[in-house]
């Protein structure tokens, strides 16, 4: 049958569900070992954060799409959680190999890291569901916005996350999850560009404070003169 935008989106959603069948919505045994190896065990905080962000996500999803769709929001959040745990485990395996350490206490007790990683996983899920509506401009025949309201940078607002922190996880996320489709990788790349070109330079961005601090500490190396 001919490939239509709706069929393409349905195939992508089916593929995502298949990819995540083997992943649970709880930390895997391997991930639990990484948590236990930490100086401060982050397990409880991780589970509590997932619970509270799940409630927040479903509530905001319902507000954006309609109160009858809260259940749909929960389903998407569950897929996001599976991807979040799966990517976290893969990232830690690479870090263990690269750094030859098993104690990731600082990283795994960093709330911003977890929130950014979960936001990225949810962005992948939302972009997979929103694929068909994005391509036709995001409007149904009646001119009512569909799904686009839920696409990036919506998730940053829901989780009160700065674009700068979200940006940090994108590349490692793509490296850690080789099953991501070409379209999703392109979508994440577009998010990166949007952050770099616009969002990271908004007045409330933490980037200005970081730049100021770097300047006060003195330049580490001489910058090259700008090219024409």
């Amino acid at each position: 049958p001919p490939q239509t935008p709706v069929r393409a989106a349905m195939n992508s959603i089916a593929q995502l569900r298949v990819d995540l069948t083997s992943s649970g919505d709880q930390p895997s045994a391997n991930l639990a070992v990484y948590f236990k190896n930490c100086t401060v065990d982050p397990t409880e905080e991780v589970l509590q954060r997932v619970e509270s962000l799940g409630q927040l996500f479903s509530q905001r999803f319902g507000e954006a799409v309609g109160p009858r769709c809260v259940g749909l929001g929960k389903q998407r959040f569950t897929l996001g959680i599976r991807l979040y745990y799966r990517v976290m485990e893969s990232m830690l395996k690479s870090e263990e190999k690269r750094l030859s350490v098993q104690n990731f206490s600082k990283l795994l007790n960093d709330s911003t890291f977890h929130t950014s990683l979960l936001a990225c996983a949810l962005e992948v899920v939302m972009a997979t569901y929103g694929g068909s509506t994005l391509k036709n401009g995001g409007y149904s025949n009646g001119g009512v916005p569909v799904e686009t309201d839920l696409c990036f940078p919506w998730i940053l607002d829901v989780f009160q996350l700065t674009a700068f922190d979200f940006y940090k996880v994108i590349e490692s996320f793509i490296k850690a999850e080789p099953s991501l489709s070409k379209d999703i990788v392109k979508h994440l790349e577009r998010c990166e560009h949007l952050i770099m070109e616009t969002i990271a330079w908004r007045a409330d961005s933490p980037l200005f404070e970081l730049l100021k601090r770097t300047r006060e500490e003195g330049p580490v190396e001489q910058a090259e003169p700008p090219a024409t």
Binding site: S94, R98, K106, L107, K168, V169, S172, I174, K186
Partner: peptide, 21 residues
């Protein structure tokens, strides 16, 4: 993922990006 422009160096990873060594 081969179309993605990877920018991180070999010695950089998520730990460095969140300031933990």
């Amino acid at each position: 993922n081969q179309d993605y422009h990877f920018g991180l160096e070999e010695h950089e990873g998520i730990s460095e990006l969140f300031d933990c060594d």
